[in-house]
Every structure is written in structure tokens, then in C-alpha cells.
Write a protein that binds this DNA or RNA. Sequence first.
DNA 1: CTTATTCCCTGATTGC
DNA 2: TGCAATCAGGGAATAA
Length: 271
Amino acid sequence: MPELPEVETIRRDLLSRVVGRAFSRVRVLPGAERIVRWPSPAEFARTLPGRRIEDVSRRGKYLLFRLSDGRYLIVHLRMTGAILHRPKDAPDDPYLRICFSLDDSSELRYTDVRKLGSVWLVEEPEAIVGKLGPDALEGVTPQTLRSLIEGRSASIKAVLMDQRALAGLGNIYSEEALFLAGIHPRRLAKSLAVGELRRLGEAIREVLLEAMGHRGSSFRDYVDAEGREGQHQRHVKVYRRTGEPCYGCGTPIERIKVSGRSTHFCPRCQR
DNA sequence: CTTATTCCCTGATTGC
DNA sequence: TGCAATCAGGGAATAA
């Protein structure tokens, strides 16, 4: 499940590998048409060849390729998407959905078991990422956190996962940040005190930086641009640790539902 | 404006 | 052991 640390790991991998390269051929494989959200799959595949990749950036969980004609190729991996950079004669990758051939005999291969991911080719990236809140890796001050929770009656976990409030956190890292800050995921967001908001902001930053240091978490499908797994799944404190002892106090980690998502927490350390 | 629910999609896991 | 039901979950769409 690529969240901010996984997408950022891929971005950094791709920077050195594809910036300066041009697309030579683009194929949307049969059955994968739905992944191409804009324009039509045929126009998408026809327009990209000849365009050079000038930069790779990230907003929340979105990857943005700035192209030489000023347009942007935008990719969202959702649950099971991956972007692999391979030599063109490398063995086939399973679940290949879109193949971007580059002008140096390499390929960007978009693979996606469940076909839930999305790609766009647009002139104006704000049309896609404009609704996102501030990036979770930057600008998470107590003041911004306070502005996020104002006028909302949702739980703090729901707010952290709301990409229009804060962009980049999903289930894994919102749970980990709340554990680190000692905050119960069902707490009403607006009930948090200033000190708790400050701790939460620090926890978000710490969790994301540590996960990026481990090149992301590979619980199921996530791999980086070279097809390698991350290591942070070995370091999570609560995510998918139902029944296992809390590293802080030994109490078994519990699993509950919060705003429709399974949620893990320590009932003793997070009140 | 808000929050809650459904849907997408298929491999892995669970339950009988 | 076998097979069907359930689960996983980001975000869009829809309902309330």
C-alpha cells in the first residue's frame, strides 16, 4: 500500500534514472484502459512519445512527471500499483498494465494486480492534485494541524487520513503516528490539546522519516522502482500487530474499526 | 459544508 | 481438503 514514504522512495529512485529520457512508445495493455483516467487511452498512448521527462515530483501519494511540452504525467498507485524501471529486454513483470518505453532502451512498467491505480496526462496538474491538503512531510506545525481539525466532528484518525486535510498518510502511517504520540485513534480531532497536536506533528514527521530510511513498508505488494521490497514493515509498532505485545508496555495490541477502516492501537499507551 | 457507505479489483486468508 | 465468503484499503462517487 504505497503511502507517502513509498511514493517518495520511488520518486527518488526515478529521478536519477529517467529525468532527461524521452518516451519512445507507450502501450496500454488490454483490460487496463480504466487505469488511464485522462485523456482516452488511445490519445494517452499517442501523445506521450517524443515528450521528455524533465522532473519527477510528488504531492501526497501522487507522482508527477513534468514533461518537455509543459504537460504532466500523473500517477496514483492506490493499493497495488508499482512503477518498475527495467531494461527493455528484462523478464516480463506480472500484472503489467501500461508499458512506457524510453529512448535509452529502458522501460517504465506500470504494474497493478487489482487495476485500482490511475494515470492522467494533463496540462494543469492542479486539476488532479489541487484538492490536496499540505504535504504530510512538510508544514506539519501545531498551527496547521489546528487549522485542519477546526470545525470537524471526525476522529483524529479520519482527519489524518483525509487527503484534503493532510496529504500522504494512509492507514499504516496514521496508526503509527498516533501510537507514537500516545493518542487514541477514536479521539475527536478537535478535542486534542495544543501539546498533543505538537506531539502528533512531531510523530508524523518522525514516522515518515524513519519509514523513508527503510525505503518504505512492504506488507503485501509494494516494491520500489527496481522491484525491491522496503524494510519498514519490520519496524512498525502497531500496524497489523493485533494481539501482539505493545513494545512500550506489553499490553496486547487491539484492532478496531475507525471510520470504516481497521485500526490498530495500544489500549494502554493511547488513551 | 459535513460524515458514512459503496464500489472498484483480485489474491490471500478465514470459516465451515 | 475444498470451496465460498470475507478481507485488504485509497479515493471517487453517492447517500444522508
